[in-house]
Write a protein that binds this DNA or RNA. Structure first.
Lengths: 199, 199
DNA sequence: CGTCCGCTTGACTCAGATCAAACTTGGTGG
DNA sequence: CCACCAAGTTTGATCTGAGTCAAGCGGACG
């Protein structure tokens, strides 16, 4: 289930719009009227903290659905905004829910998508219980390996990856260097090869 | 959507069994044949780490569904085991998927349940990006507040709560004491009152 | 009565956060 | 073509706060 498939099924009720970097899709507390699909560019869910900081909770790239969970919620729980200039498909919540109630295959596909999110989030929480930076990074990279493969190409910057796994970028760079020095990984830009380990 | 509602809809194909504390429902890598509902007692998802440790990824109490995400997966990604002596409803994966394909209301309710999980997990990940123990504990407690309320009664032990938010129990106890001393919370057993803050 | 387990507190340590600074890289535009 | 800026990358020095180890308390339960 990706943004294009959604658009195929909901083309009549959906609208597509282009937004500039930093633009707002919705604000926390707004009436949750739509969900979204990222056709190109990116979008992110953010939340303000008490101290004035801003936390990115979720990033969505091309093809991804966005704010799916808000289908079942009265209001948005986060701010939704555009990262990079983006083309976004807007799906009215009602249309999606109606289609789901009527079309079993669509309902299955959509549930499967949500279930995948649940697994990925659980994996992320699990990751963060690993206190040691080297082991956490190795575990995070292993999760990204396709079944059987030994190399990954990161889809995002190392800095973003650091944030994703709950490290500062400095700590990550240092850890990568240590892992490289001890021969546990080999790195070339965004590409990493993991050496076999006893795991 | 809870275990009883599932049982109402799937009574014919479901089975109910009683299991002793520590018993195994499934192992990681097993063919994902069923999902479960906790009628009484509890269940947990665990994973072994490379170092021989054991991480609890998820806890399910009475009424909760269990291993929902595995409906859409060939194999289980975690170990499922029983915490406390429990009565568990076993729903064959096929039966659930078939019902979802046919019954729009059921599909909606189930998707809503998954969406709720996604939100809770995202909140948990967000929580763990807060490095400071005091702020993290306050944020975690705030999340548990019912809309408008100022007091919560924890459903689990403080020790379990500590684990849930990614702190050791020692760190949590100290933090609670500090928060109490500075008047930010008042505590009585499992019951906590949060003082208004500028949040 | 003994054992288990949650709770509580103290002392110490160290890994990762923080602050700071330099250097790539890529894009923009004059 | 170069000046310039922004963002990612890299490295160093320092520090702090949560982890760890250790130990004692008290209630529940068989």
């Amino acid at each position: 289930m990706d943004a294009k498939q959604m658009l195929d099924r909901l083309g009549e009720t959906a609208t597509v719009c282009d937004l500039a970097d930093g633009g707002s899709l919705f604000r926390r507390g707004d009436n949750a009227a739509n969900m979204y699909g990222v056709l190109s560019g990116g979008a992110r869910l953010c939340r303000d903290t008490a101290e004035g900081g801003r936390i990115v909770i979720h990033r969505a790239g091309p093809g991804a659905l966005f704010a799916e969970a808000s289908l079942f919620s009265e209001v948005y729980h986060c701010d939704g905004e555009v990262a990079k200039d983006a083309r976004i498909a807007v799906f009215p919540k009602r249309a999606v829910l109606d289609l789901m109630a009527v079309d079993g295959d669509f309902a299955l596909a959509f549930s499967g998508h949500l279930a995948g999110q649940v697994q990925r989030l659980r994996a992320n929480v699990e990751l963060r219980t690993i206190r040691n930076a080297e082991r956490r990074v190795l575990a995070a990279l292993s999760l990204k390996l396709d079944d059987g493969a030994r190399t990954v190409t990161l889809p995002v910057s190392w800095k973003a990856f650091a944030h994703e796994i709950g490290l500062t970028h400095e700590a990550l760079y240092r850890t990568l260097k240590r892992l490289e020095n001890s021969g546990q990984i080999r790195r070339d830009g965004m590409r990493v090869r993991l050496k076999k380990d006893a795991g």
